[in-house]
């Protein structure tokens, strides 16, 4: 049980815009165990990034956690305690390595700043050199003095990763870390992250829209849609014992390499408008198996195994 490093219970988060309240995260419960990779998949607006920004206390002035409880290593995370944890015990890396680094400061200065901020007890410079070497930026001592524009996109994502793990965090949240990168560079970055995890035993939340990346990297996977978790399971359960019609639809809409020219099976319709979300299941208007109950009543969560759950009224039929 105490294997759980992060647990999120009944999280609701909204953005308050001029058009009204956008319920970006609508009752999300999950946990991350020590050393595991939890993958979160979902399309734009599914709430996958909003949920993580809420955990990190980074939702911005328009965003607000309206309900729910977040605990890290058994202690409740509040708006004041998150400041202690952020960057030290929990770190985050973002999609765009071009805009996440400060262009007018050397990467050495930016790496060192993380250590100074968290009162690192050793030699700052040698730690920076060590981290750059571990993410494959060499010769590290020389490269410390260089500025972000002197690095390629893949190298910048390596530097961002070095910054995120320099204080030995227990949990790394990576939000679409390879989406802006080419496939060969993506493969290099994912391999590097795997090595870092194996060396330190840290846990990781990997957020992506790419189901292929999760099939290779994640131990467990959450599938999100319309601010809610539709399905949760081990990577084999999600891919081989798919339960939710949305997950099935997502997997079917990908080109099948075994039947290359076969017509694709898209999910019809458009994602829900979170300003006026459907009362029942957020997927109801696109679901080929929708029933009357799905319109007015929020689906319950049904358990298929100790690790496999899904939220869908089809579960009543078993």
């Amino acid at each position: 049980m105490n294997d759980e490093i992060l647990s999120v219970d009944g999280l609701h988060a909204s953005y308050f815009t001029t058009k009204g309240e956008v319920r970006a995260v609508d009752g999300v419960t999950f946990s991350v165990r020590r050393g595991e990779v939890l993958g979160i998949a979902g399309e734009s607006g599914s709430g996958k990034s909003a949920a993580m920004l809420s955990v990190m206390g980074l939702s911005g002035s328009a965003g607000k956690v309206t309900a729910g409880r977040i605990t890290f290593r058994g202690h409740e995370v509040t708006s004041s305690t998150i400041k202690e944890l952020r960057g030290k015990s929990i770190s985050m890396i973002f999609q765009d390595p071009m805009t996440s680094l400060n262009p007018v400061l050397s990467v050495g200065w930016q790496l060192g700043e993380v250590l100074r901020r968290h009162k690192w007890q050793g030699d700052t410079r040698s730690r920076c050199v060590e981290m750059l070497e571990r993410v494959g930026i060499v010769p590290a001592a020389e490269r410390l003095g260089h500025y972000p524009h002197e690095f390629s996109g893949g190298q910048r994502q390596r530097i961002m990763t070095a910054m995120a793990v320099i204080c030995n965090p227990e949990l790394l949240i990576a939000d679409e870390p390879t989406t802006a990168l080419d496939v060969t560079v993506q493969a290099q970055i994912l391999a590097m992250m795997r090595e870092l995890r194996e060396a330190s035993g840290m846990s990781m939340i990997l957020i992506t829209h790419d189901l292929g990346v999760l099939a290779g990297e994640a131990d467990r996977i959450l599938i999100m849609y319309g601010g809610r978790i539709m399905e949760e399971g081990t990577r084999r359960e999600i891919f081989y014992s798919t339960a939710h019609p949305y997950t099935k639809g997502l997997l079917r809409s990908l080109p099948n390499p075994e039947r290359p020219r076969e017509r694709l099976t898209p999910i019809d319709g458009q994602p829900p408008d979170l300003l006026s979300p459907p009362k029942g299941c957020p997927y109801v208007r696109r679901c080929p198996q929708a029933m009357r109950i799905c319109l007015g009543h929020r689906p319950e969560t049904f358990t298929l195994s100790g690790t496999h759950k899904y939220s869908c009224w089809l579960g009543v039929k078993g």
């Binding site: 893949g154 496939v183 060969t184 997997l251 990908l254 390499p257």
Partner: peptide, 26 residues
């Protein structure tokens, strides 16, 4: 060959079984 080997496969078993032909450098 290396480009195709780097494409993520949305299938856990096939993903585990494939051989990655990594390229040097950038």
């Amino acid at each position: 060959v290396s480009l195709l080997s780097a494409v993520p496969i949305p299938d856990p078993d096939k993903s585990d079984m494939r051989k990655l032909v990594a390229l040097k450098g950038e």
